[in-house]
Design a binder for these strands. Structure first.
Lengths: 364, 364
DNA sequence: CTGAAAGCGCTAACAA
DNA sequence: TTGTTAGCGCTTTCAG
């Protein structure tokens, strides 16, 4: 059998994949009957059903998902688009999305962009082709007019094919756009972290992670400044250091601040990875954490609770973020009334061992 | 327009999704012409092409991937099945698969099973329906007869529909089965780690991570024992401690060994997560690492190079593992001759700060 | 309760 | 160079 007709170049024993028609023939019934048995949504005699199921087993038949999709049935797919799945926070969001999708019988397509916005565009269109029920875009972005314009188009063009744009951990667009937003209290977390340091008595707090226009970085900087203002501590430009959200950047930024002899008794790193770099820079300089300098991170990625000292940081419910994104979009699809399209989860400071009062008491 | 006909329950402005027929009408050509312009695989007048492309833009048309798939064109999909995407090693494998898939224009479906073998079965069938070009199963397993049987069926039933089973970081099945295997030198890594400790002078080496029948754990235990044998150090049952591959298990196992006053100067943890637990147990007991006790992990997950002390461990090229899995299976599909179906990547010890000679010289 | 047949949207002969 | 049309595999009226 397998040697009939033009062979495909692939090796293996596979013959033609059996179709519903093969099953029908084998069972001696019509394709409609097979379809009914398999869908189990229509009355069928016990005997007929048995014949069909036997044929299905004999032929090891599985339906063709594409044909089902074309015919209007078919499993829905959620598309997840992120920079890099190996980043802990993203992996957690991904896990949340996948779990909720799986729980509700959906499939999950994952695409990474490595920060390439060109590729993001290609991916969104690809997902439109795939009839993804939703496209979930994850992670902070450079918030420009161009960005807003692009997202608006994404939102509209997905909406026009019955799909939905979901922004997860990204700032919302205009109210009028057909998009779902799941964010977390980014600024609030930074406020809390800074306030924690301030209430310990710190006054010179180095903020590491300035990135002009990067939504996540901006929000954290704003939270930092607001806390300073509330404690009547003047913001000092020299204390606000640039750094992309990676370990090396944190290392360099703190080294530089140290070299410049900027006065500080605490470091607030805009992400845990940056905090790791900061920690190393402090060690190099012989500054002990937390005895000499306190250190706070942001994200609460699993590993930082294993550090020595265990890192004080801001917990973000990333997995819940992903789960919520999936839930919102699936609820809406299922017509569950009152499905919100804008949710903000809260963040909170987790105090661990890397923060303490400053070494010398602050003058009153 | 949008208000004509029976409304779907979903909100939004989406009307009917435009099809190739709409584009044809709008451009005043036939559907075949549109198809040709879009596929760009056939001569078409410049003028005609322009008309078609304009219509495509006006209608914001994208092809229906399911229809393309049914018709035999269509983007292939790789299915990745793993326990939990938040585990660093798995995330890295996933990143490798996704990158290679994307590079070659394929899509990547991710399903997690949380270790549930029942779900694994369901997922494999689902992937068969989806016409996944391959199903990549990731991670160690309980190597039983039942397992072999199940995998054999997976291999055959995927093969029968022209798909391919790929085992990534799992032990191979029989030679005769249609499956591709990408593994790493699991036992060799364990041998190397143990030999490193032995050559430092350690003789009492606690192995933490025994799991009867778990392929990865078994391999590592075998490597450990082989190194001991090669150094003529007798294997002591009390030094081989059970622990699943998680932090808590490592913590408990080492605590217990300490409580039992088992004599050892080094700990070989079967995974880095286990090593983390071991580290904590040692600290609790006031044992310094590496001055009093040396510690080695396995996996080289990113965080362990940030610990204090930085962890000596076995590096596994997880990302490369994923990339290779994707490459092999795609090469084979593209009929690239000589695509192997069995690859083993090598591992190596990364010596960092958690290992040192034992405190007291060993009697000669 | 079962079957025949008309699509779903696209591609690829085959004709013109 | 372009158009017509027969599938791809499944679901779902509509008849029987």
């Amino acid at each position: 059998m397998a040697t009939t007709g033009p062979q495909k170049p692939v090796s293996g024993t596979q013959g033609r994949r059996s179709t519903i028609r093969d099953v029908a023939r084998q069972a001696g019934v019509s394709v409609a009957t097979v379809s009914r048995v398999l869908a189990d949504n229509y009355p069928v005699t016990h005997a007929t059903r048995a014949k069909v199921l036997r044929a299905v087993r004999q032929l090891d038949y599985v339906a063709n998902a594409h044909a089902k999709a074309l015919a209007g049935t078919g499993v829905e797919t959620l598309a997840l688009v992120l920079d890099d799945i190996t980043w802990s926070a993203f992996a957690q969001i991904g896990a949340g999305v996948e779990q909720e999708a799986a729980r509700r019988g959906r499939l999950c397509l994952v695409c990474t962009t490595q920060g390439d916005r060109q590729r993001e565009l290609a991916v969104v269109n690809l997902m439109r082709e795939q009839h993804a029920a939703a496209v979930i875009l994850v992670g902070g972005i450079q918030y420009t007019a161009e960005y807003r314009e692009r997202m608006s188009q994404f939102a509209r063009s997905l909406d026009s094919v019955g799909s939905r744009l979901v922004l997860c951990g990204r700032p919302p667009l205009g109210e009028d756009l057909p998009a779902t937003v799941v964010e977390y209290d980014n600024e609030g977390g930074a406020y809390g972290a800074t306030a924690h340091l301030l209430s310990l008595g710190h006054r010179g707090i180095l903020f590491v992670g300035v990135q002009e226009g990067q939504s996540t970085a901006d929000g954290r900087l704003v939270g930092y400044r607001r806390a300073l203002a509330d404690y009547q501590v003047p913001a000092v430009p020299a204390l606000e250091r640039e750094a992309v959200f990676q370990r090396d950047a944190g290392l360099r930024a703190v080294r530089e601040a140290l070299r410049e002899r900027v006065a500080f008794t605490a470091v607030f790193a805009a992400t845990d990875m940056v905090a790791l770099g900061a920690l190393e820079a402090l060690r190099e300089a012989g500054r002990r954490v937390p005895e000499d300098v306190s250190l706070v991170g942001y994200d609460d990625i699993p590993m930082v609770s294993e550090l020595t000292p265990r890192l004080t940081t801001v917990h973000v419910p990333y997995q819940e973020l992903g789960r919520t994104a999936a839930r919102l979009v699936l609820d809406r699809r299922e017509g569950i009334g009152g499905a919100e399209d804008r949710v903000r989860l809260s963040t909170h400071v987790v105090v661990r061992g890397s923060t303490a009062p400053p070494p010398a008491p602050v003058p009153a």
